[in-house]
Design a protein around this nucleic acid. Structure first.
Length: 147
DNA sequence: GCCAACGTTGGC
DNA sequence: GCCAACGTTGGC
C-alpha cells in the first residue's frame, strides 16, 4: 500500500496505532481492498512521492472494507459529489500494527529479479494498492532482514 | 519541472 | 461503444 509520507508515514502509523486508509479514488485499488483483503493480512507500507521512495515498513489489515466518509465531506480534498450516501462509491480498510523496517528503496527493488513480478514495479503502474503473492512477501522479508 | 503512462470523462 | 482530450500519478 502506497502512502505519501508527508500525508501518512510509517512513523505516523506506528504513533497512531491504527489508521483508516481513506482517499483511495481508483476502482481497481478499491476493489483490492473490498474483495481481496482480509483482517490479518500483511501489508507492505510503501512511501511514494518523496525523496526516497520504497518500502518503509510493515503493517496489518485491521478491518474489512467500509464506506469512506471523506467522499461525502465537501471540505475534504477527497470529496466526490457524484457519490451518494445510499450507494457509497468509495471504500477503505483500516490498517494497524505498523512496524518500521529499514528502507528498501525502489531502486534496490528493481535490481532484484525475485521482486520483478510485483505489481508496484510493473512499468507505468500507478495503482496505490497492489496485491503481493506469498513468494513476493517472503522475498521482501528476506531483503529487509539483510542490511 | 518534466514527462510517460494510464484512468476518466464526455461528445458523438 | 469509440476515442480524443484531459487530469493524475509518481519517478526522476
Amino acid at each position: 500500500m502506497k502512502s505519501e509520507p508527508n500525508e501518512c508515514s510509517i512513523d505516523d502509523l506506528v504513533r497512531l496505532g491504527r489508521v483508516p486508509w481513506t482517499g483511495v479514488r481508483n476502482y481497481q485499488a478499491r476493489n483490492f481492498m473490498r474483495d481481496a483483503m482480509q483482517v490479518g493480512d500483511g501489508v507492505l507500507f510503501y512511501h511514494s512521492s518523496c525523496p526516497e521512495p520504497g518500502i518503509a515498513g510493515l503493517a496489518r489489515v485491521a478491518s474489512a472494507a467500509y464506506p469512506d466518509a471523506t467522499q461525502f465531506d465537501a471540505a475534504s480534498p477527497y470529496f466526490d459529489p457524484k457519490s451518494r450516501p445510499d450507494a457509497p462509491r468509495w471504500l477503505h480498510v483500516d490498517v494497524d500494527q505498523g512496524r518500521k523496517t529499514r528502507l528498501l528503496p525502489l531502486a534496490e527493488m528493481r535490481q532484484r529479479p525475485e521482486l520483478a513480478t510485483m505489481g508496484v514495479l510493473k512499468p507505468g503502474s500507478r495503482l496505490s494498492i497492489t496485491p503481493v503473492t506469498p513468494d513476493e512477501w517472503q522475498a521482501v522479508q528476506a531483503l529487509l532482514a539483510t542490511g
